[in-house]
Design a binder for these strands. Structure first.
Lengths: 214, 214
DNA sequence: ACCATAATCAAACAGACGTTTGAATGAAGC
DNA sequence: GCTTCATTCAAACGTCTGTTTGATTATGGT
């Protein structure tokens, strides 16, 4: 029965990291919440840094797989692929994770935070996790937006990730619409995101792509 | 001559906060870089939290004033206002700050970070600084995008700020275009941002605005 | 010259931090 | 029964944290 304490530690860490940040959360706070001994973290994970990575590893693999499988399903469909569908394939799995319960919301919150906050090693770790997924999405988007040069497409992908990180992180700037969040807001948010991002991605390029081959 | 040490402390803090984050930067590291005594921070600013706020106060006022004055100039122009022009009025001052030198780049980096990272009190402080500016921009955008309901407009403003925060924070996801940054990148970035965001803001509303008073 | 005020300084404060240790506990194998 | 191994535990480790103190130095006013 190694797993029980480990799970409780991961749950507690996930919650506290999402609420307070990584540096601001102490091992003592985590073990207290998990009702475990202070030494348990170093025993099970080795260090605080390793615990942070474990928190992400636990859920990130499934998320990436879902995103990739949904993208693959799109590409296998034969018909032309819409930008909205690609965005949906990327965003919906994470929003579904959110809908699973408080832990999902915490995790996506954490995911947003980690892109900006977080140590260099953590960002490196996440970069390696994200890389294959983003590469696939970039490839598909490049195909259905042939006028965009690679640099422009990458910038727009960067902007897209910025919107998602910022929104997931729950950064509440002044006029954030609380009223909207009353009920069924995940669905509404998904459509708002797709509407906004699809238009941004589809904007005419600043610099027309030079035709390569033919 | 109280100001000399204070300026050096603010410079050092700004640089270190931007590089490492708030919690990760110790007063000792700041005073060492500023070549000042450890006690200088508590003497001149009172506490670490107050120092953080002072770092923002120093540059935020001018930035907000420039944004507002550029927006006012637009609105006073008589002609219809384009979404691109509004975005330019918001973004260009911050990019110009970046162009001023390393301190400008550090500060905008910091600005992006603070929205996600940062204590509750700091976010509150920043919210109060931003509120009047965002309110004005929201008003103008609401006027030139009359089909958007207030909730949708606020979400899209939220997304816009997300893109800016993420980009300024310098979050480097896997495929960030380094090649583009070789020269004159600020200009290019500005146009990329406006192109992307203007399209997103102008996207057709999900829910058509009900006509209020003819 | 003197005083008053401001600024700097070395030193110490109490507390929190991540990590380590060595003993105590538990359950499975034989 | 005994042994073995993984887990838990209280306690301490040394280090770093933000803040405070009291003495010391510099500055400007009269």
């Amino acid at each position: 029965m190694e797993t029980d304490t480990q799970q409780r530690l991961l749950d507690a860490a996930e919650a506290l990291f999402a609420e307070q940040g990584f540096a601001e959360t102490s091992l003592r706070a985590i073990t207290a919440r998990a009702q475990a001994n202070l030494a348990a973290i170093n025993y099970h994970f080795g260090s605080k840094d390793a615990l942070v990575r474990a928190v992400f590893s636990r859920r990130l693999r499934r998320l990436s797989e879902e995103r990739l499988s949904r993208l693959a399903a799109l590409n296998a469909g034969g018909q032309p692929v819409a930008v909205e569908a690609v965005l949906d394939a990327f965003i919906e799995p994470s929003l579904r994770l959110r809908r699973e319960g408080p832990h999902g919301e915490r995790f996506t919150r954490l995911l947003g935070r980690a892109q900006i906050e977080g140590s260099e090693s953590l960002r490196e770790f996440l970069r390696d996790c994200y890389a294959p997924v983003l590469e696939q999405f970039q490839r598909t988007l490049g195909r259905i937006l042939p006028r965009l040069r690679p640099e422009e497409l990458r910038w727009r992908l960067h902007f897209t990730l910025g919107v998602l990180s910022f929104t997931y992180a729950g950064a509440r700037l002044p006029p954030v619409p609380f009223a909207v969040r009353v009920a069924g807001d995940e669905e509404w948010l998904l459509r708002q995101l797709i509407q906004f991002l699809a238009a941004g991605l589809r904007a005419p390029p600043l610099m027309e792509r030079v035709e390569t081959a033919v």
